[in-house]
Structures are given as C-alpha cells and as structure tokens.
Design a protein around this nucleic acid. Sequence first.
DNA 1: CGCGACGTTGATTTGCCTCAACGATTGTGG
DNA 2: CCACAATCGTTGAGGCAAATCAACGTCGCG
Lengths: 193, 193
Amino acid sequence: MSFNLIIQNISKYIKLDEGEEQTFIKHLSTKIIKSKNNLLNGGEVCKYSTFVIRGCLRGFTFDKNGNEHVQDFAPPDWWIADMYSLITQKPGNINIEALEETEVILLSKTSQEELYMQIPKLERFFRILTEKSLVANQQRLMDNMTLTAEERYHIFCNRYPTLIHTLPQKHIASYIGVTPEFFSRMRTKTLKK
Amino acid sequence: MSFNLIIQNISKYIKLDEGEEQTFIKHLSTKIIKSKNNLLNGGEVCKYSTFVIRGCLRGFTFDKNGNEHVQDFAPPDWWIADMYSLITQKPGNINIEALEETEVILLSKTSQEELYMQIPKLERFFRILTEKSLVANQQRLMDNMTLTAEERYHIFCNRYPTLIHTLPQKHIASYIGVTPEFFSRMRTKTLKK
DNA sequence: CGCGACGTTGATTTGCCTCAACGATTGTGG
DNA sequence: CCACAATCGTTGAGGCAAATCAACGTCGCG
C-alpha cells in the first residue's frame, strides 16, 4: 500500500495502533506532480503538509532582483510546506516545484488539526518534527554566518550525499548561498585535490 | 505572584483551568542571573527551557576564530534555550548570558515531558511556540542570503524597536551578521538621512 | 537539426572584513 | 572619590571572498 512510507516515518517518534492508523490514513490523499510543475506558487495560501514518497521537491523564493533562493529540498521520506503560510493561512512567498516526476501525500491543515484532537500522539509527532526542523535551521543559519562557501559545500555533501549527483548544480549553489558561477569555480578547485 | 507573566504568555495559545495552572506552576523554579554571568555555557547539556520575566539574555556561539555570533535575544516574555542540546541532551555550543541582572523561570526537560502527559494542552503550546520559532528562523535565514546588511538592520529596527537603544551595538552587529566596525559605518551613513 | 538551459571561464566590481590607532565611556579597586 | 584599566564605538587604509556581467561550449530534447 502506498501509505507504508508515511506510517513508517511517523513510527520513528510515536506508535499508532491499528485503529489510529486507519483514522489517520482516512485524512490523506495522494497526488503526482509532473517534472518542473509547481505544487505551490508564491502568493498562494499553503493548505497542506506534504510528504514525498517518490521523486524530489524543492522549496524556494524569489528575491527582489528575481533570483531564486532554495529554502529546502524534499526527497522521499521528507516533509515540506510553506510553514509561514500554513500556520497563518495567509499568502506566502514560497514556491514548491517538482525537480522530477514526484508523488506526494497531502495532509490538509484542517485534517491535521482534527487529528490533533482525535489522536493527540500526532500532535507530539509534529511537535518533534518541528523541533528537528528548527534545530537544523538554526544550524544552517549559523553556518551561513560563520563559514565560507567552501565549508558549507562540504557540509552539504556530507549531509545529502545522495542528492549531490542528482541535483542541478545551480540548485545546490542556491541552497548554500552562492551564485552558480562561484559554485562552479569552487568545485573545480576542490576537484583538483 | 511572579508566575503571572508566564501564565499570561501561555494563555496566548491555550487555556489552562485553575487546577492545571497549579500543576504547571509546581514544576517551575525561578533564578536570578547577575549581569554578565552565564545561565548556560557552551559544552554543557541544556537542561531547562527558560522564560525571562525581567532583564535580558542573549544566546550566542563562538566560531573557530573565537568570534561571537548572537543566535537570539530574550527580553521579558520570551523563551530561550539551546534547542539542539535540550532535545538531544548532548553537549551544545550555545552560551546564554545575562546582559543585565535578569530573572528567569526554569522548566526542566523532565518536567516538561511529564507535563506533556499530564496536560496535553501544554504539548500544543510548545508545538505552536516551536512553529513560530521555526518560521522566524527561516525568515532570518532568507534575509541573510538575500538582503544587504543595511536592509537587515532596518528589519531589526522595526522588529525590536525597544532593544535598539538598550543593547550594545556590537551585539546587534553580531545578530545581523556583520562586524562592529562595519556596523558603525553603516549607522553613521543611515543617520545622515 | 536547432533551440534553450546549463555549466564553465575570464575580467571587473563591490560589500564586507581585517588590522590598527584613537577618543569616549564605563567600571573598579585603592 | 579619584585614577587607571578595560571595554566600546569610531575612523582610516588595505585586502579578500563572492557577485556581476559577458562570452562561449555542451548537452538534452522537442
């Protein structure tokens, strides 16, 4: 069944019994996004927490010069959303795009809140998930302020060894916060070692 | 009573009845930190969620050159912790220092987890708190990648109008991610307008 | 085949840092 | 309550990491 992966993902932090699993699954839907299509556009209200089961998504924003900046990648087994927009239900500025054909599970905001009431353990799950996100984000912020681009690139390579070879370089460049040109120079330099 | 502020803070997102308030308060303790003293040192395990009721704290790390980098400020009515260390219960690298004599309320990690069981609404509260933190952090990260130091300074001024005049400039500089020297030049430039 | 996206390379510019020197302010011990 | 040290903010000169702008080869794909 196609919900195996998400059930397994949740079971990392909480245990659902048979009935709870069924209740949970009733709130889910699936969707396939074609390569280069958007699951969410900047300016829209984000209505779903999204869980990737196949393919890969990327969340990004445009700055005032029209340059893209990657906020996060979501390979299989990852959650993604425009958290600001999801929480406030106001229009956000995050675009979520499929880097290849991608299959996702959608959990609507209203379903999520109903589930918090029906299965309080799920509130625990999302609390823990959010805590982990926060810690990762804090670390990334500090890395951006204290490390050189080259050091951040090494960290990225260690943290996402599988993504390095599948992602276009420009997206990795954007994630670590440099231009594609500079990223290219950096790579040729470190390749020589 | 000195727990008024924290009860009020929590009531922004959840409602506790009389009995729950009492249960909650039983888990709290207070502490006064003298100016320039540390509530937490890098290398230690963070055992408490801290809530400030008077004074001001700052959380910061050292980079490999020995330079400080401010992660966050905590004026009254704010929560602060080394989230990484608090969650994992491993040694962290955040220092939390009192910028002036500061009075705090401490909620130990073990108490917090007990309370999640006794009063599930508190788990909701901290979920929401963490979500807000995450959103603010994501925004700050994007600001750091897309904006100039000057623009980040303006954002800081708008977001923390009260802190600007009480904080030493070097700490603001560190928060927005520039050296004190550059920050000084920036200010004299924008003052002329 | 031909077009458009991607990565590379070169030349130049710039935002911010580093190091150093100097008043002003704070605070601390005698 | 003063003297001295320490910390802080400012200013100057020079340097570096990364951005910008532009040109060009290559590849995947309609």
